[in-house]
Design a protein around this nucleic acid. Structure first.
Lengths: 188, 188
DNA sequence: TCAAGACGGAACCGATCGGTACCATTTGGA
DNA sequence: TCCAAATGGTACCGATCGGTTCCGTCTTGA
């Protein structure tokens, strides 16, 4: 556990905002859980929104790392992204995608938090594009966006069903997509 | 425009909660926009949460009716659901699916609002199941859940991209899915 | 015509919101 | 060892939160 106040705040924010929602968690609560004094909070962050942005940046980096490492462990097969998701869904405290949740809660598309969350999705698409290209798939850019749509659909569905099943469902759809894509490529 | 206070409140709630978020809109705001007195609010609803539930029920009924009518106009082809979605995405004030947004904001799965939102998805899946069965597709129950995942994925993606494109993207994936499903049925 | 009910406005409640200011204590590096 | 920086605690700020109460007015149907 981190000794610095800032790290403790971000850690508490990642847990509380994710579990209960951004607007549902007040500053008081963050201070209690992190053990940071009120003054220290505003020495490190100009506002609560500032902490939200920091939390989203942390989420972006952690989840992309987990995804990439999990896929690498599985031989860099594109479909493995859904197996990594299934693992996440099985976690007891899973509550969807923090970026999607943030874009829902922070309605204004121009707000800093919303933009960081949207940027996360762009970076994941970029990763998927490289993954699909390396696996030799044509139309990898189109496939990457379709994979992202399937992943987001699985995230939202898992938020409702609370099982890993949506990841398997999305994987089956993605497999059909790759099969069709390959057939089209062979035919073309 | 309705004359009854209750109707005006629900109408204001559907607009404001959808556009800005449930927690972001206070009771004061609802009263101003609807032109309803504070006392009248609590004569019709026991709490703000009560109004949230009423708003979600209204959303459920309206969106399922729009979907069914739009699909019927297009000859009851299952893939038409994505064309109806594309129309919705083009609306200037589109801000995703009110049910998904509610499930994100109302983190507690046992809260009334969360459950009404989840029920909406079940009803849409039920509709899709009937649509796919009527169109003669095998495994219609599985396909219905996969369609729902694609629709939710498109909703979330459109929230970020702000165009109708995610609907077309999801439709392409669904078409590949139906093609694979038909091939598998022929092979089996 | 008249009473009953529905209504809008406003004052008010305790609680909590995000944020500031001040102070005593602890910590870490020279 | 000692000083400066970082820290936690608390009191406080105006604003807003969801909710209750009372009152004067308007509508409506018998």
């Amino acid at each position: 556990m981190p000794t610095h106040a800032r790290d403790r705040l971000v850690q508490a924010a990642e847990h509380l905002f994710y579990a209960e929602g951004i607007r549902a968690v007040g500053v008081e609560r963050l201070l209690t859980v992190s053990g940071v004094g009120r003054a220290s909070f505003y020495r490190h962050f100009s506002s609560k929104d500032d902490l939200v942005v920091a939390m989203l940046r942390g989420y972006d980096q952690r989840w992309r790392r987990v995804l990439a490492e999990g896929v690498t462990e599985r031989g860099n097969q594109p479909l493995a992204v859904f197996d990594v998701m299934a693992e996440r869904f099985e976690s007891a405290d899973f509550r969807g995608c923090a970026s999607i949740n943030a874009m829902v809660e922070l309605a204004d598309p121009d707000s800093p938090g919303h933009q960081v969350a949207a940027e996360h999705k762009r970076l994941v698409i970029e990763y998927l594009d490289g993954l699909l290209a390396a696996a030799g798939h044509d139309h990898h850019a189109t496939l990457a966006e379709q994979f992202m749509l399937l992943m987001d659909g699985a995230m939202v569905t898992a938020l409702r069903e609370r099982t890993a099943e949506p990841a398997h469902r999305a994987k089956a759809v993605a497999a059909a997509l790759l099969a069709t894509s390959a057939t089209a490529a062979h035919a073309g």
